[in-house]
Design a protein around this nucleic acid. Structure first.
Lengths: 209, 209
DNA sequence: ACCTTGATTGAACGAGGTTCAGATTAGCCC
DNA sequence: GGGCTAATCTGAACCTCGTTCAATCAAGGT
């Protein structure tokens, strides 16, 4: 017998994996184009050229599929933010924070539906937050904490952690409400201005508590 | 004939109005207890002791009913925030802002499901934002703008407006993410601390742009 | 070739929002 | 009060979805 543990990728396994990625691709495209509510089992099956039931061989349910899409989205988001700060040489900490925030805004604006799906699901079901989610969030937080630690070298790890969460939540809130009311004005550059106001104020003064 | 314009509240009208408020009451209680997803047409009808179809005589659809609940919620929220600042004699502007923000947090924490419903609906359907919604939001903004105007008397109306939106969105973001991860720690007093960090920093420095 | 095991299928189930033809009732004039 | 008209009320029926499962089929081993 051959080695047992790293199971052979038998023909079945391959089809399985193929279907899996095909479904994720289709779901991602659909969410991007029409939003989370456009995810319908029968539509997906038709597009993927498989039976409805086949979806449930590969994912526990449609939520699981959306989670897989969210995994991709979250990873891309992390890369985009990291890339933005890597691109700006080694600016002042404040500028790094603003750069990252604008990258976050930009990503959310250009991929609104995918970005919304990231939260629409976690929010509604308050069950087990998956591991990768927390891991990705941790990576984002680390990116923010770095310039903050340089900016406030005397603050404790705890203080930096608090500031990180505070700033992330704040920027997230600005982006969220900013994009939400696409109708009622608040053009993109106003949102950018708001982020700049927030960060330049917060980071030009130091002591908290 | 009697005057025509302010139509008589005939027996039908009364029942109609009665059913309307009864349905809102029931829906409000259900959302409070079990969240937005617990709103089921058949359940509501059974509890209100009417036929399923009757709901649609009084509201365009279930969304409309939820909107009515949201109307109440939003109004209560406004009152709570206004009351909090009225209760604190005439403190410094910074303290007013913190007081209001903590009142906002407190309301969201104590009425999480109702508060979530406020955004879960507006978010998903991006159709016409109803008039009362913008009006209530305007009232909230006015409450925030008042202390800001005292704090930065030289800033233009536009600057104050921007700062108002910025702070509101930021606090909203902190509350949102804070309450979202009820599981993964972030106890209430940490959230309060985050709000305090944000506001004390922002409002102790002045110039933007 | 044959058997066993697991994947695949799609019709069927159940849950939920919404509708509508018929039954019921209110309002009104005699 | 009796009768007529128009509106309201009713709940069975319709439709859309997610999800399941008995029956079918294919892969891999012997």
């Amino acid at each position: 017998m051959p080695d047992a543990a790293p199971k052979m990728p038998s023909k079945t396994e391959l089809r399985r994996e193929d279907l899996r990625t095909r479904l994720i691709d289709i779901a991602e495209a659909r969410i991007r184009a029409e939003g989370l509510s456009a995810i319908k089992a029968r539509d997906l099956a038709k597009q993927a050229d498989c039976a409805v039931g086949a979806i449930y061989n590969v994912f526990p349910d449609l939520n699981g599929l959306v989670m897989a899409v969210n995994g991709r989205t979250f990873q891309t988001l992390g890369e985009v933010v990291a890339a933005s700060v890597a691109a700006a040489p080694q600016g002042k900490p404040q500028e790094e924070l603003i750069t990252m925030s604008l990258a976050y805004l930009r990503f959310a604006a250009e991929n609104t539906n995918l970005w919304c799906a990231l939260f629409d699901l976690e929010m509604s079901t308050e069950m087990d937050v998956p591991q990768w989610y927390l891991a990705e969030l941790g990576k984002l937080f680390a990116l923010i904490a770095a310039p903050l630690a340089r900016l406030f070298p005397d603050d404790s790890r705890h203080d930096i952690e608090m500031m990180t969460r505070t700033l992330f939540s704040s920027v997230h809130g600005i982006v969220l409400l900013g994009l939400q009311r696409r109708i009622s004005g608040v053009p993109m550059n106003k949102i950018e201005e708001m982020i700049a106001i927030l960060l330049s104020n917060v980071t030009s003064h130091s002591k908290n508590t």
